[in-house]
Design a binder for these strands. Structure first.
Ligand SMILES: [Mn+2]
Ligand SMILES: [Mn+2]
Ligand SMILES: [Zn+2]
Ligand SMILES: [Zn+2]
Lengths: 158, 158
DNA sequence: GACTCAATTGAGACTCAATAACAATATAGC
DNA sequence: GCTATATTGTTATTGAGTCTCAATTGAGTC
């Protein structure tokens, strides 16, 4: 059941907050709920709009304050695609090494597997003698006249 | 001789400008000269500061107007490492597929080879049926207590 | 070298994502 | 319920990058 799965994430977020001595507030839970109601990539602005449907008191500042908490708890992850604003996406399924393909025309984002990144990260750490914290592989593309054309570009479902 | 090599780039830039019906101005040449006097990665602000040493009339707007020309002519290239400002670097040597390793502490950037990206780009284009325009592989790391520690982080020489 | 005129420029206003300050409010432990 | 303080919304602010526009200047033409 979908709801049960989401309940599991809810508990996980509440635990994260209490473990850090942070309070479980209506606004934080609304923002969490909004993030997990979205199957795609969303911006901070998207998230604000959606969170306000769950709690109309949510402010922009609180969204920006909640985003680091959600990323730190690994419930969502940041996706930087070279625009001057950031995208985020809920970590609903198993995480493997992935690349982001972004269409420069319609801004649609596709996550695709890139398993060699695990090996590459280790190689870099070894060769340069530094600790690798994160890796991002982004592919800029154009999907016009192609298979993906015509797909809906909305980030939040209905 | 260093100066001869630079002269070659100067000619290349002048040709690029005239070929596009653009004028060879003092400001554009100062910005070009500043970019090529730097061995590392630099920001637009770095470039402005340096260009003003060659022509103190150079303005911020003109730097931002020149950057697309320098990238379009392949004399420099943009390096986005996920910060809210962009880095650039002069294309002095042969271009292959490279990844950027950025230290999250000192912001130093290292370019390292990542030849598999050529194959990967082709694979993505084929599998997703879209045209790949560009690829960026970024590695976030920390170089503290390590081989690279103590290196100078200044972008412009002396 | 002077003439002409469109391309270019610098100054400063502006945009927009993101952050900071602060007084008002709400949470969690008692 | 009471209290201490974490959190909030509002509002102002930052900072990279863009835009506008009047003043300037480069590059062909004589
Ligand atoms: Mn960016
Ligand atoms: Mn920005
Ligand atoms: Zn597209
Ligand atoms: Zn470092």
């Amino acid at each position: 059941m979908k709801i049960e799965i989401q309940d599991q994430y809810i508990e996980s977020f509440k635990e994260f907050l209490t473990r850090k001595g942070l309070r479980v507030t209506n606004q934080r839970m609304a923002i969490f709920g909004a993030a997990f109601s979205c199957d795609n990539h969303f911006t901070a602005e998207d998230l604000l709009e959606q969170a306000r449907k769950l709690d109309d008191s949510v402010s922009r500042a609180t969204v920006y304050r909640a985003l680091p908490l959600l990323t730190e708890s690994s419930l969502i992850r940041e996706v930087d695609v070279g625009k001057d604003y950031k995208y985020y996406t809920a970590n609903k399924d198993v995480k493997t090494f992935q690349a982001q393909v972004i269409c420069m025309d319609c801004e649609k984002i596709f996550e695709i597997d890139a398993p060699f990144m695990e090996w590459y990260g280790k190689t870099v750490a070894e060769k340069l003698l530094l600790s690798v914290e994160d890796q991002r592989l982004q592919v800029s593309a154009r999907c016009d006249q192609l298979k993906l054309k015509g797909e809906c570009n909305r980030v939040f479902a209905k």
